[in-house]
Design a protein around this nucleic acid. Structure first.
Lengths: 175, 175
DNA sequence: TCGAGCATGTAACAAGTTACATGATTTC
DNA sequence: GAAATCATGTAACTTGTTACATGCTCGA
């Protein structure tokens, strides 16, 4: 995760590990948090994998600049092309970099994801129907208020996500 | 995480590890996934910590029943009382068990969380304003469509979450 | 009798956090 | 001259995944 985020951020140009973290905080912090303890080792791994080149700037702060290689670029693009998966909101991170992807793969993946969402919604609506009926026969309804609320939240969330993706497929304007 | 979910599920009564996973799949699978590779070791840790008691049923399937102890109950309730944190959607899991919590702590935490959400919304609106202005001066707007979309998603998501929590504080009905 | 489901577990690995450790530079 | 920020890194630990391994039972 930290590796792909770093690669994605380095797509805009070379910078230091410190800069990468700052940019991540300003952009994708909603979905993932980076610590130096994971970032610096990740950068080293990317260098030894040939995805990045490390450049020593012999300035006073002994900072290092990282630049993405052609290989790194292609690795990143392959990750980007993979189907979206709903678990852990990883898809939002992927989406964040979707401008790099070609329109055809993009549409294909977005539509596939829409389909997954619709299945999820249908399933949740079914579960909700059952739970609602069970709840009617129970006297102490209030004892399950938060459990039921979280269920509703899930459904509402899925619906919102579905609407959001529809708008995005239509290239709608975000006034 | 797996530990607290297990404790939370065991609040309703003793059951096997297998049962715990099944119940988790039917209820909190939206937010967390459990594998046996994490569940069984977690149950052992909870037993040696004194939060659970293991009961061998000498039936044919050599299944084990886990029951929460008084200590485990109080440990779980302490976790439940802690303030909600927005990172990684952990708060939804906590919320799922909120029926166990006393109304006063509940309201206090929900309101504190609402406050955090409002700050987040304000901050995101500010960022969005800046980005929108910057975008107007840029000719190749379309190249940033998904980045901007994810930003909008984040804002919309926060607003939805805020509305959701408002409804919950008011003990609204989920028709 | 065969496959689905019930039931438990381990070992290797992956990914990340927290705390620690260091030191230069900039800004008030 | 003190505090904030820039800048990099390591070690111990936590948490979880995946793949493997085993064996029983119940219904078609």
């Amino acid at each position: 995760m930290v590796e792909t985020v770093s690669l994605g951020i380095l797509m805009q140009g070379k910078m230091s590990g410190y800069d990468i973290k700052k940019i991540a905080e300003q952009s994708v912090s909603l979905f993932i948090k980076m610590s130096y303890g994971s970032l610096y080792p990740a950068l080293k791994r990317l260098v030894s994998a040939g995805h990045l080149i490390e450049e020593e700037t012999n300035d006073s702060k002994n900072k290092k600049l990282y630049a993405i290689t052609e290989q790194g670029r292609s690795y990143f693009m392959n990750w980007l092309r993979e189907p979206l998966q709903a678990n852990k909101r990883e898809h939002l991170l992927k989406l964040f970099f979707y401008d790099y992807l070609d329109e055809s793969t993009r549409l294909q993946n977005l539509r596939a994801f829409q389909h997954t969402l619709r299945s999820g919604i249908a399933q949740m609506e079914a579960v909700q129907g059952i739970v609602s009926k069970e709840l009617e026969q129970i006297p102490n309804k209030d004892d399950y208020y938060y459990r039921v609320s979280v269920m509703h939240y899930g459904l509402q969330f899925f619906r919102m996500e579905h609407d959001f993706f529809s708008k995005m497929i239509e290239k709608g304007e975000w006034q």
